[in-house]
Amino acid sequence: MHHLFHLWVYLETSPLLGLTATLAVYTVAVGLARRLRFHPLANPVLVAIALLALLLAAGRVPYSVYFQGAQYVHFLLGPATVALAVPMYANLRRIHAAARAILPAILAGSLASAMSAILIARLLGAPRLVVLSLAPKSVTTPIAMGIAEQIGGQPSLAAVFVLLTGLLASILALPLLRRVGVRDWRALGLAAGTAGHGLATAQLLLQSETAGAFGGLAIGLNGVITALIVPPLAAWLSPF
C-alpha cells in the first residue's frame, strides 16, 4: 500500500500520466470511430474528452495535474495553425481565383456567428462572463482564448465553447448545407472552417482535399477577422 502511494505521488508530479492518458485514450477513440464507420456522434475528440473527464473524476485527479502532461499536446495547436499554410499554398491558384467570393463569405459568416452567439445568450439571460466568452467561439482555440481574455471573458470557458462549437459544426455541416443546396466542396470547406474551425475542417478533410484547403484558409482568415471585429462588437452588443 505504502509502495502504491509513492508510485501515485510520483505520477501526480510527472507529466507522464497526463500525456500518456491523452494519447492512449485518443487512440482508443479513433479505433472506436473507425469501427462505427466515422459516424458523426462517434467523433473521436468528443469520445476522448468524455472518457478522460470520467477517468479524472474517478481517480480524483485535478485538471491542473492532468494538464501538466497534456500541455505538450496542447502546445502543438500553435505549430498546427502555422502548418495550415501548406494546404493553403497547394491551393493558392484556386483560392486566388475565388478571392472575390471568399472574403465576403467569411466576413458575413464571422459576423453571423459572433452576433447570434452574443444576442441569443443575452436574450436567455446568461451572465456577462458567459456572453463574452461565447463571442469568439467560432475561431481556433489559441485565438479564441486570446480574444476572450482581451474583452473580459474567461479563456478556459472560451476554450470549452470553441470545442463544443467545433463538434456541433462537424456534425451539422454536411447535412445542413446539403439540405439548402450547397454542394460545392469549396463552399462546404469554407463554411466548416469559418463556423467550426479545425475540428469541422478535419472532419471534411477526410472526404475532400479541396474542402480541407478552403477550410484551412477560412480558419486563418476568420481568426484574423474575428480578432478585429469581436472586441468592438462585444462592446456594442453587451453593454451591461
Partner: peptide
C-alpha cells in the same frame, strides 16, 4: 447560443460562397 450561432455561421458562409 452554441447551436443557433453554429447553424447561422455555417449557413451564411456556405450560401454566400456558393452564390458568389
Amino acid at each position: 447560443a452554441l447551436l443557433g450561432s453554429t447553424i447561422a455561421g455555417l449557413l451564411v458562409t456556405g450560401v454566400v460562397m456558393q452564390r458568389l
